[in-house]
Design a protein around this nucleic acid. Structure first.
Length: 551
RNA sequence: GCUCCUGUAGUCUAGUCUGGAUAGGACAUAACCCUGCGGAGGUUAUAGCGCGGGUUCAAAUCCCGUCGGGAGCGCCA
């Protein structure tokens, strides 16, 4: 269809002697008005006349007719041609040379993994999948916050107050320790000094704290790995703050030598006032490293060792200023790739009662939410399939739960804040992941009854309804949508598209019978809905969502 | 105080970058549709662009102002 649009644009370009026609095209508000529209406001003083004049042009192949509607010129595709292309549709695999690194998830060890982290992982994973589908070489990177003040705080608390270490449920225990430690410190400011000492000892390689760190670090990582496995998220590389901390300090000191950074109240900072970016602190006054210290070294590694062309950081919008500062500093350091660093920010996930904070412990953990949704899904599946085994019920319910969770995280425009109400469970109806899975099972069910594996003969000419034409258009739109998202990162366009397609299918389904319509018609309809199912499956997979055969 | 983001029916949301036709969808509410390929569905109804200016043939979209909500602004990450 992109090709059709292009040829039409050329024809009109010739007739009007104007450039950029292709950008003027729009989709009419209702498909009964046409498939493609050209507003004629820019062709002379009287757009209605201009439209009438242009309506006389000779239409290129693939177009059926053109009508005018006031100042609009509305084109209709040749329906049979479109349906034919949709029936014969083959997946394309584009190739691009650019190498992109997507850094996401970045959880801190020794803290809770909550639903805010979930939005990040799901978003990052979808970006990775979509960029790969649009042809980029993608490195999926995680960056674990395994050291820093928060870890020192936990180690300090465990060392000082915990007589017994747990033997199970490590992740939650650590999350709880962090909350308690924060509370302790807030009651007595002087304890901060003790924590600073623990951090300094640890950074110098103190044996006791290193051993304690190793043990507790592993507990956290095992918790994360389990979550990633369940979410079906895979990383190509794990970076750790601990491995860039030391080199980061060198960079900070080097920045001072070069006059990019200066000392201020004992700490080192890069003054970015003249770029309206405030001051960027790169080393603490006690000589230990900061988030920024480590990010400088991390970026350097990405550029030099991994030789990437583009670098995407998936991090919440509250860090927008921080990343602007980081990118500017990288630029001052002379990295040409600094201009190709991109902060993919997104809105907070918060509770109806307000912002979540690992420090305060008022969070919904990933496990908590998942278990709630899973419970609901299990009961729904049970209702429908009394004969299924427990195992099958749970497997299916888990896939449905994942669809519900991920879809909720992805269908909103990225900057939008997501507010969770603890008591409201996620919906499986309406605009939801399960709604899309449902469409897939309906199609699969038809195929089961049809008892055909492969449709060899089909004929576009027998598919004459508007609904069939609409479905065909959706199928043909998919590839350009993916490549568009690969450029603008508007992930939520994909869930939106899938909802539209699903809805179009559902109304087709209730109005049109596929089976028992004679071999020719039935086979052609089967072919069409098979391609609908494939498109939905591909789309869901790009969002990290699995389909189910039955639900 | 300064900076950034955001405001669309009772609730949630798409559209805003790149201005075009009747602002699309979901939930809730009220009707209706299984002798049919799966009702986690379909059809219909009700209801909306915070406010005030400006630019334009045309504004949810751009500009200015204003009000409400959120986030950030040196030793957290």
């Amino acid at each position: 269809m992109d090709q059709l649009k292009l040829t039409l644009a050329r024809v009109i370009q010739k007739a009007t002697n104007q450039k950029g026609i292709i950008d003027l095209f729009s989709i009419p508000p209702d498909s009964s008005l046409g498939d493609l529209s050209l507003p004629c406001f820019k062709f002379g003083k009287n757009p209605v006349d201009a439209a009438k004049k242009l309506a006389k042009i000779k239409l290129p192949k693939g177009f059926d007719k053109v009508i005018t509607k006031g100042p609009y010129l509305n084109f209709f595709y040749d329906k049979t041609e479109i349906i034919k292309s949709a029936l014969e549709y083959k997946e394309i695999k584009p190739k691009k040379n650019e190498k992109v690194m997507v850094e996401y998830s970045q959880p801190n060890t020794h803290k809770a993994f909550h639903i805010g982290h979930l939005r990040n992982v799901v978003l990052g994973d979808a970006i990775v999948r979509i960029l790969r589908a649009s042809g980029y070489k993608v490195i999926a990177a995680n960056y674990i916050g395994d050291i820093g003040t928060h870890v020192a705080k936990s180690l300090w608390y465990i060392d000082k107050y915990c007589k017994k270490l747990p033997d199970k449920d490590y992740g939650n225990w650590l999350a709880d320790v962090y909350v308690k430690a924060t509370k302790k410190v807030s009651e007595n400011e002087r304890l901060k000094e003790e924590i600073s000492q623990v951090l300094q000892k640890f950074e110098k390689g103190d044996k006791h704290f290193t051993a304690l760190w190793k043990k507790t670090y592993k507990w956290s990582m095992d918790t994360f790995y389990a979550i990633y496995k369940e979410l079906d998220v895979n990383f190509d590389i794990y970076f750790f703050e601990s491995e860039v901390s030391h080199e980061g300090k060198k960079i900070a000191l080097d920045l001072q030598k070069k006059g990019i950074a200066r000392k201020d109240q004992g700490s080192l900072l890069v003054d970015l006032d003249k770029y309206k970016l405030g001051k960027y602190l790169v080393l603490k006054s006690d000589g230990t490293s900061l988030y920024s210290t480590k990010d400088l070294e991390l970026a350097k590694r990405k550029f030099k060792k991994y030789n990437i062309d583009r670098n995407i950081y998936v991090v919440g919008s509250e860090q927008e200023l921080y990343f602007k500062q980081l990118f500017k500093t990288l630029e001052l350091m002379g990295f040409p790739q600094a201009k190709k660093c991109y902060h993919h920010s997104y809105g907070l996930v918060q509770l109806s009662s307000g912002k979540m904070s690992s420090r305060l412990g008022n969070v919904i953990s990933y496990d908590e939410l998942k278990n709630q949704v899973l419970k609901e899904a299990i009961s729904e599946v049970k209702k429908r399939h009394k004969d299924w085994s427990k195992r099958k019920i749970k497997d299916t319910a888990l896939k449905i739960s994942m669809a519900a969770l991920k879809f909720t995280m992805l269908c909103k425009e990225r900057k939008r804040v997501i507010v969770f109400n603890v008591n409201e469970s996620l919906s499986f109806e309406g605009e939801s992941g399960p709604y899309l899975q449902y469409v897939y099972t309906r199609i699969k069910s038809i195929f089961k009854k049809a008892k055909v594996k492969e449709i060899k003969a089909f004929d576009a000419k027998v598919l004459t309804t508007q609904a069939e034409f609409e479905l065909a258009k959706y199928i043909l739109e998919f590839d350009s949508l993916i490549s568009e998202i690969g450029e603008n990162y508007k992930i939520n366009m994909l869930p939106r598209y899938l909802l539209d397609l699903a809805q179009a299918f559902n109304s087709y389904y209730v109005s049109t019978k596929v089976l028992g319509q004679g071999e020719n018609l039935t086979n052609s309809r089967l072919k069409l809905i098979e391609n609908v199912a494939k498109t939905i499956k591909r789309g869901l997979n790009l969002l990290g969502i699995d389909v189910v055969e039955e639900m």
